[in-house]
Nucleic acid binder design. Structure first.
Lengths: 169, 169
DNA sequence: TCCATACCCTTGGAAGTCCTAGTATATTGC
DNA sequence: GCAATATACTAGGACTTCCAAGGGTATGGA
């Protein structure tokens, strides 16, 4: 979506912040903007790899989550909590995956309120193939150095914990 | 959107990857997933602060970009390139900002194809107030340690450069 | 027991992103 | 000078996200 820019727009923004007397927050502003942009780049790579499988990232995430579930089925609210997205987003994803024959809804045996989602055989094999593609074409070529990966995991893990994502030690 | 989970879902995903024999890409997978989630958290914070101003992040970014432009006006394609978003996204944002009286479209003096966008007086003051709010309520409380901010800027800068965002040294 | 409260899922709407295609204007080559 | 190509913006569609509101099911206290 456009060739490389002659100058780094985030570095420019940082300088603008400093010029306007906001030097005390210029660095975190730049870091946060860089996270936004990095996410955008990574998401685009992922979507490109998933497209041939007829999957989007949102749908893949749900498929992958189900493929790791012990019982092979998960209540929708559990999926919503684990994926950290709004329940309506799960409803949306399940609608489309169900239409594609990759998952199936079934009623919960004891709680009439909850709906279970389960992988179909087709969904399970597609999840496996899509994961293999992401592993080789995105995660194996992330472009991050190994020690940078470890550092990112530590820094972002601290951040997410402070933000209330999880409580575990 | 949900209380803290008892266990870190990204750490669990990493273990699942290792269990399935994908240990060689488990760490980058986890790091990339963590970037996704961190972006989601930061975006939610930013949107919360901007909401009282009637702004979304996409609109704010455009407003801020214009407020730093020397001439006060920018062609739409320039804005698209600097914000690194699709031209149709800029059209969308300008439509809404124009309707809110914050920017105005005007024809380019010499090139009949391009449209200039310019801040109105109202847009300029709103941009200033929104930036002050973001500075004090998001960037000043990022939750990242100073040395982690510097490290993030280096790592993500390298990544973005390798991804072709910019060419500058 | 029964009513109020809490919880689960879905529908409809607003907003953002991108893509594809179309129209209008410049630029380039013959 | 004119046709072919390139560029700039916009319209429509697919997708995701969230929020607000509604209907159905559990649960707990009087």
């Amino acid at each position: 979506m456009g060739s490389p820019l002659p100058r780094d727009p985030i570095a420019e923004a940082r300088q603008n912040w400093e010029r306007h007397g906001w030097g005390d927050v210029a660095a975190p502003m730049a870091a946060i903007t860089a996270i936004m942009r990095t996410q955008q780049i990574l998401l685009a790579r992922i979507e490109t790899v998933l497209k041939p499988f007829g999957l989007t990232f949102a749908r893949y995430e749900l498929l992958a989550l189900l493929s790791f579930a012990r019982s092979g089925a998960l209540p929708m609210n559990k999926a919503s909590a684990l994926l950290q997205v709004h329940p309506t987003s799960v409803t949306n994803a399940v609608d489309r995956l169900e239409q594609a024959g990759l998952v199936a809804r079934s009623p919960h045996p004891t709680d009439g309120r909850t709906t279970l989602i389960e992988l179909t055989a087709e969904g399970r094999t597609l999840a496996k193939r899509a994961t293999a593609a992401l592993n080789s074409e995105v995660f194996a070529k992330s472009g991050f150095r190994d020690d940078d990966v470890e550092h990112l995991l530590r820094v972002l893990g601290d951040f997410r914990k402070a933000a209330g994502d999880f409580t575990e030690e």
